[in-house]
Design a binder for these strands. Structure first.
Length: 328
DNA sequence: AACCCTTCCAACCGCGGAAAT
DNA sequence: GATTTCCGCGGTTGGAAGGGT
């Protein structure tokens, strides 16, 4: 047995909503719990729209004036959108979370209609956030690398794209985004402010991958993030940085590096989850008596996302990232 | 005034994963 | 486990509004 269809899509109304439909919809959604208007109930109330999907979207737009900003995006918001898109791609709900008063659709529309063109005009590919010239140059150099080297090379180039632009590109960006090069500088601040943008900048900064045809290595700069103790340690969701009070210092190096307890072997293990342009990777580098071995795999970026959301007890939520302390 | 072009944004479409049966 | 629907999300479309000629 399967679930009955909520909507046969016959006699359903499409296109713009009118006042009558809005009134019906609002009367319905204010009476019903959210779980009810996600299914077929709206149609039973005479609202001739297919499922609650359309109602939900319309409600978002109708109630927009109450809490959503109507003015155009500020340069600071533009910068943040570009940085976040560079880091996590077109995950608009996540990006919109970092922009109070903006919906995911607002951000998406702004990106598609304005920012993509702006970046293209600057000679930067809005998909990879790399200069077109560099992409063309790289296009001829794809052969000859192993799979890992190719991917790590990509990560490296993405970071170069973020941090090491040509003078011409920097001038272009300074013209269009006066504050943009706050992101370009490699050095993360020693003491971290508690807002998401800085967290992202630091995430980009801590993984600096050097790539060559013969080896690659991961390094980072030590710095600290101020985070608060969670008031409810068992829950990691819905806490925001604004609600937190800095109480303790978290050291990235302590988190990322596991040192061997064996005094006879000089070992350390570096765990990482890195933002690499359009890629997210996690893995670890084990160094035994100076011999390094790195494993990597694609990841869903949940760790990065948790940090962006200010989930201060993220270490408890990502035990798999640290893995079992194994040395070999 | 009429037409054309551009911009903006609400709404729709289709996909993939989750949930229900 | 298989099948079907639900739902969230990214991408796209189309109409309204405004500006230029």
């Amino acid at each position: 047995m399967v679930k009955p269809p909520c909507c046969d899509k016959i006699n359903m109304r499409k296109g713009a909503w009118n006042e009558e439909g809005d009134a019906q919809m609002l009367a319905f959604v204010t009476k019903q719990p959210t779980s009810n208007w996600q299914v077929g109930a709206p149609r039973k109330q005479g609202i001739r729209r297919c499922s609650g999907k359309s109602c939900k979207l319309r409600k978002t737009n109708v109630t927009k004036n109450d809490h959503i900003r109507q003015e155009s995006f500020t340069p600071q918001e533009e910068e943040l959108i570009i940085k976040l898109h560079s880091a996590i791609g077109s995950r608009w709900p996540v990006i919109a979370q970092q922009l109070p008063g903006r919906t995911d659709n607002d951000v998406k529309n702004y990106w598609n209609t304005k920012l993509k063109k702006k970046l293209s005009a600057m000679g930067i590919d809005p998909v990879t956030h790399r200069p077109f010239s560099q992409m063309l140059a790289d296009y001829g150099n794809i052969s000859g690398l192993t799979r890992t080297q190719t991917r790590m090379g990509s990560l490296s180039r993405d970071n170069k794209n973020t941090f090491f632009m040509s003078n011409q590109e920097i001038v272009q960006q300074e013209t269009l985004f006066p504050n943009f090069n706050n992101n370009v500088k490699m050095e993360p601040p020693e003491v971290i402010k508690t807002d998401s943008l800085d967290l992202l900048t630091q995430l980009q900064a801590f993984t600096h991958v050097q790539d060559s045809s013969t080896n690659h290595e991961i390094s980072f700069t030590q710095f600290h993030v101020s985070v608060a103790s969670s008031s409810s340690s068992s829950s990691s969701t819905s806490s925001t940085l604004n609600e937190m009070t800095p109480q303790q210092t978290f050291n990235w190096r302590d988190f990322l590096i596991e040192n061997s307890q064996d005094g006879n072997v000089n070992e350390e293990k570096l765990n990482f989850e890195a933002i690499g342009g359009i890629e997210l990777v996690k893995g670890n580098t084990t160094s035994t008596n100076g011999v390094k071995e790195t494993t990597e795999e694609a990841c869903d970026g949940s760790f990065v996302e948790a940090m962006l959301n200010g989930e201060n007890d993220m270490l408890l939520d990502f035990p798999g990232l640290l893995g079992e302390p194994s040395y070999y």
